[in-house]
Design a protein around this nucleic acid. Sequence first.
DNA 1: GTCTATATTTGGATAGAC
DNA 2: GTCTATCCAAATATAGAC
Lengths: 205, 205
Amino acid sequence: MSENTVFQKNQGTKEKILKVSKILFSELGYKGASVRKIASEVGIRESAIYNHYKNKEEIFLDVAKEIFSSPFSFEKEDIKELSLKGKVFLHKYTMHYKLLTFDKNNESMFRILLIELLQNKELREQFMNEFHNKNIKVLSEGFFIMMQNGLIRSADPMIIAYEFLSTLFYIRLQITLMRFDSMSTTPLSTQFEKHVDFFWESIKI
Amino acid sequence: MSENTVFQKNQGTKEKILKVSKILFSELGYKGASVRKIASEVGIRESAIYNHYKNKEEIFLDVAKEIFSSPFSFEKEDIKELSLKGKVFLHKYTMHYKLLTFDKNNESMFRILLIELLQNKELREQFMNEFHNKNIKVLSEGFFIMMQNGLIRSADPMIIAYEFLSTLFYIRLQITLMRFDSMSTTPLSTQFEKHVDFFWESIKI
DNA sequence: GTCTATATTTGGATAGAC
DNA sequence: GTCTATCCAAATATAGAC
């Protein structure tokens, strides 16, 4: 057996721990998701966990890395081009947001964000920077271009962006809560489209 | 000593426990606020707590009772009267909301709501009913009257209410987070007024 | 009503055999 | 890498003296 052919028992254990932890943290929070429960769900003993992670905190950090890693894929060029189409920009942006809301993995990350937002300062900072500021930046750039091209009425682009984003967030929050209780979200899921319609009527010239 | 003159040692202990618990639950969440910490902060032993509350859960329920107990004092008549003034209604409503955001006690309750929202099903239901639905009801009534009187453009009053409320919530969330970190909220606190201005421009005829 | 003492459980983490 | 065994700390809760 050469040095390069090292056989590892249960190679996917670390990935499994990560996967299980995502779910448990998103359902029980940091304190509620004990190392016991994680190990049990993975199908190994607690002590075996420590062969993959130094401690519980390290598991959480590994999970938390993902919370803000799947942001909006709008490129500079897209924004310029799309903004000229006015409402289409808002619609595309919102549909992207809607997709994230219903995506299993993103949903777990959003739940963790909600649960730990007040318990974790770093999470709060990331929420402000990655979640709020980045979205406001992209949106206000879009609104600025629309304004320049006479598509929408004159106003502070940052304010318009803030107004638009806040409702997206609130819809997502409500849907996330309802899905947590396995309630039907069909009435609410159309709220995204209604938001775009109402908002466009509010700013178009 | 007659039966009617019973002297109790430390009569205010239960109130003190409640007061301390409010703060600790709002800072550390249900799990984080241990009976140990509560007792210590009150200045008594853990065991003494159990002379006032059956268990920890009962303390939390006592605290949680307050979360949705300070709603809007808008009477039926007020809504009708205020709605005819259009923007004044929105402004008064928002200023009330702003007051709650910065009120110490309401702030604690809002924090608990955020922390425990995903951990407590009853809290989620109350959030939807007491927080969301009640606000939507009052607001949509107001918008309906405005519409009838030709003050605002035609649209579904429920949608308008949803759009208006969602931004109020988002501003409150951001301010609550920033105050938790003792950050200055002066730039954000004017967001309430900006919201009213922008929104009125969006719906007025 | 508060205290000391104590029971009991749960959770994070390590040692050492296989 | 996983297991058994074990340790230690923290947390909920109770019993009984004062």
